[in-house]
Amino acid sequence: MSTPRQFCTFFVDGLFFGIDVLQVQEVLRYQPMTKVPMAPTMVRGLINLRGQIVTAIDLRHRLGLSSRSADSLPMNIVVRSEEGAVSLLADQIGDVIEIDDETFERPPDTLKGAARELVTGVHKLKDRLLLILDTHRAIGVAQGVAVEA
């Protein structure tokens, strides 16, 4: 039996991604960020989320995609983690969509690099493919992610 699940969707460098809505705390427009010198490159900066300091991770960097042009401002998808909230920076936010498990398929073996590590599967939607992101790995708390300065 398939249970429909809701995904918060967003775009990164033309790719269409989804995260289980249950993992998403909130979605915010661009926030001013404080740079962290010597931080791993995926860390774009720190934002003030109502008094809480949240690390912002650039998904373009994390996924090994091309850098965002200087004039486009990223959006924040704030996800929950055991370590507190972490923001994932995406180019654009899509709708929250409901999908059946039936459309799910494991990622192809040919997927390489960071994508292989972070994309847990693909939903075959009518007009496009939705890539499901492993948020725990994306925020770098899961094993196998070099976070050394």
């Binding site: 001013p32 960020m33 404080t34 962290v36 010198p37 010597m38 931080a39 791993p40 995926m42 860390v43 900066g45 720190l46 934002i47 003030n48 008094g51 809480q52 300091i53 949240v54 690390t55 991770i57 370590e83 507190g84 972490v86 925020i139 770098g140 708390v141 976070v147 050394e148 300065a149």
Partner: peptide, 27 residues
């Protein structure tokens, strides 16, 4: 003093971060 996220735990130069009077974060 607010702690830094785990992604930044390797940075020995910073003890944490704080929010300044203007609402911006400072290390």
């Amino acid at each position: 003093v607010k702690p830094l996220g785990k992604q930044l735990s390797g940075l020995t130069c910073f003890a944490g971060a704080t929010i300044m009077g203007d609402g911006q974060v400072a290390l």
